[in-house]
């Protein structure tokens, strides 16, 4: 049976005395009628593709409009040689989110998580931990199960597409998935995972989808950064014992409701927000004259 609430996952975890991620894994085994090994193998394939999406980054690539490219490398250089305000992990998180977001805009291979526009958020928080040796492959796969279970609940109760619910449904959902994954990875209880998810989603509630010229470039790439950084802070808050006052499933329902009531101009139509600033309009006009 499908995953339709965070409470249900938490209850199953408690009743079966098993971790959050295992409930998600078992649901996948049941739903797709596959073995545990087959499910794990597919998750490993997905993880490898995420890793590659980070490793294959090239700073000289530019997107269709020319607006996107090179920022990931700038952040990497600054992280290494500059004096960043952020600590070692967080600077890597920022750089990774930019790299993957840019790669997507430049037609490179990525993993939609949950969408292509938000593909940088989850790798941004996980890949630096893996590369620095602070998380092994098994733990990462478990964290990805946690993330996908959270995403499945959000997709079921609300939505995960900018066209349906604005950017809160894309970057917001990715951020919530990443927050839950990090909390799981650091040994958080199902309860703490739920609080991390709730907080992450609340913090990005109402965010509109307003891509310039309708392209997944501006503001999308940098929104991956806020999604990732928000996830880290919410995971740390949850692990510190801070709770969301509003229960997680109610937060998810509320995000869906806000999305449904969001004017169509703010749902991927490029008819509002940053897309209709004078700068946004001029980019669109330039592209149109270029394409005839």
């Amino acid at each position: 049976m499908a995953l339709d609430s965070m409470r249900e996952i938490c209850e199953k975890a408690e009743q079966g005395q098993k971790p959050f991620w295992r409930v998600v894994l078992e649901t996948d085994i049941e739903e797709r009628e596959v073995t545990e090994e087959a499910s794990m193998e597919k998750m490993r394939f997905t993880w490898k593709a995420m890793l590659e999406s980070v490793e294959n980054y090239r700073e000289d690539r530019r997107s269709v409009s020319g607006l996107v490219g090179g920022d990931g490398q700038k952040m990497r250089d600054y992280a290494k040689n500059g004096t960043p305000l952020c600590g070692e992990y967080l600077r890597e998180v920022i750089a990774t989110a930019l790299c993957v977001g840019e790669s997507n805009a430049c037609m490179c291979k990525i993993v939609a998580a949950p969408t292509a526009g938000a593909c940088g958020v989850i790798p941004a928080v996980l890949v630096p931990l893996y590369k620095s040796g602070n998380a092994g492959e098994e733990e990462i796969l478990q964290a990805l199960y946690a993330a996908s279970g959270i995403g499945a609940v959000i997709a079921y109760r609300a939505c995960i597409a900018g066209a349906a619910g604005g950017c809160q449904a894309e970057i917001g959902a990715a951020s919530a998935m990443a927050a839950g994954a990090l909390t799981a990875l650091h040994g958080g209880t199902p309860e703490q995972i739920s609080h991390a998810v709730a907080m992450a989603l609340k913090n990005l509630m109402g965010l509109v989808c307003d891509p310039i010229a309708g392209l997944v470039e501006v503001p999308c790439v940098k929104r991956n950064v806020i999604g990732a950084v928000n996830a880290v802070s919410c995971a740390d808050m949850a692990l510190a014992g801070i709770t969301s006052r509003v229960p997680v499933d109610q937060v998810i329902d509320c995000m869906g409701e806000v999305g449904r009531r969001m004017p169509v101009e703010f749902r991927e139509t490029a008819l509002g927000g940053l897309a209709t600033t004078p700068f946004g309009k001029s980019v669109k006009e330039q592209l149109e004259s270029k394409n005839g």
């Binding site: 490179c108 993993v111 939609a112 292509a116 593909c119």
Partner: peptide, 22 residues
């Protein structure tokens, strides 16, 4: 119905799951 690999996936060439992968 969506399974978890619709959520974490597809592995695809960007930039848009609807406009490119689809």
């Amino acid at each position: 119905m969506l399974d978890i690999f619709d959520i974490l996936g597809p592995v695809m060439v960007g930039p848009s799951s609807s406009h490119t992968a689809g």
